[in-house]
Structure formats: structure tokens, C-alpha cells
């Protein structure tokens, strides 16, 4: 396209280009979010309706007491994340966050392996009393409510 565009239409064309780009970006974003957003699962949900093997998801639950084992290489952890109904075995290779321990909450980022184990790339545990992963906030409250019920 050379030569000045027909005088009257330039502004209209610019507006249309901008609108098209924005709509395009919006549609692309919507499409990508449908496909790629990593969803948050509770152990029960993994048991009832597991995500496809290999898809990136987050798993949140409590680290079951007595389930934490360290591998011979010193850097592999295996433990069980559960809620009151289901249990999911988890494997993690790395340095666990400081406040990661048995009996406390954790959110694991990773994927399900064909044998049903959850392979975690990353563990999000409480950083300090002020920082809780967003998905874990409700869960620990629920846990607390249950605790209260149990002790009553």
C-alpha cells in the first residue's frame, strides 16, 4: 500500500485495526485459557475424575502423617497427600520448602503419571503465617472446621 490512504478513511481504518487486534488477542486468550490453564484438584477429585496423564495440574491437600519418605539419593521425597476421603501418592525431586512437613497443607504443581502417582515439579507450602497459597486458604479453614467438629 503506497500513497496516502483515502483521506476520510484513515481514522476509521486505524480504529478497525486496533479493534481487530484487541478482539484477536481476547479470543486467543480465551482459547488458550480453556486449553492451558492448570486446574486445581483435591485428592477426592483426582480419585473420582482424574486429569489426563501428563497435563499440568495442581494438587492440594494435607501431607499424611507418617507417609513422608526420603529416597536414597537424598533429594527425592515421596509422601501421600490426602483429604478425608482419598489419598494420592506424590513424588518430588528437589529442596522442599521450609515449612513443608507431615500433617500440614501443601499445594503440589505437576502431573499424574500413568501409574497414578503424582509427579510434582514444585511444592508450595506456607511461606510464613501471612503467606498461604490462594487455593489452600479455604482448605485449611475447612480442615480447621473439621478439627473443631472432631474434638467436640
Amino acid at each position: 500500500m503506497s500513497g496516502p490512504i483515502k483521506a476520510k478513511h484513515q481514522r476509521l481504518i486505524l480504529v478497525l485495526i486496533a479493534l481487530a487486534a484487541m478482539t484477536g488477542a481476547g479470543l486467543l486468550a480465551a482459547w488458550a485459557l480453556r486449553n492451558q490453564a492448570s486446574y486445581f484438584y483435591l485428592p477426592t477429585q483426582i480419585a473420582n475424575d482424574p486429569p489426563e496423564v501428563g497435563r499440568a495440574v495442581r494438587l492440594g491437600g494435607m501431607v499424611e502423617a507418617g507417609s513422608l519418605k526420603k529416597g536414597a539419593d537424598g533429594v527425592t521425597l515421596s509422601f501421600i497427600v490426602g483429604d478425608d476421603k482419598s489419598r494420592v501418592p506424590v513424588q518430588f525431586k528437589g529442596i522442599a520448602p521450609d515449612l513443608f512437613k507431615e500433617g500440614s497443607g501443601v499445594v503440589a504443581e505437576g502431573r499424574i503419571l500413568p501409574d497414578g502417582t503424582f509427579l510434582a515439579d514444585n511444592l508450595l507450602a506456607k511461606h510464613d503465617e501471612k503467606y498461604v497459597p490462594r487455593e489452600m486458604k479455604d482448605m485449611t479453614e475447612a480442615q480447621a472446621r473439621r478439627k473443631v467438629k472432631e474434638t467436640r
Partner: peptide
């Protein structure tokens, strides 16, 4: 509950 990360 959804988390959006680097893959997006």
C-alpha cells in the same frame, strides 16, 4: 479454582 501460569 484455576491457576494460570507460564504455559499460558
Amino acid at each position: 479454582k484455576v491457576s494460570v501460569g507460564p504455559p499460558y
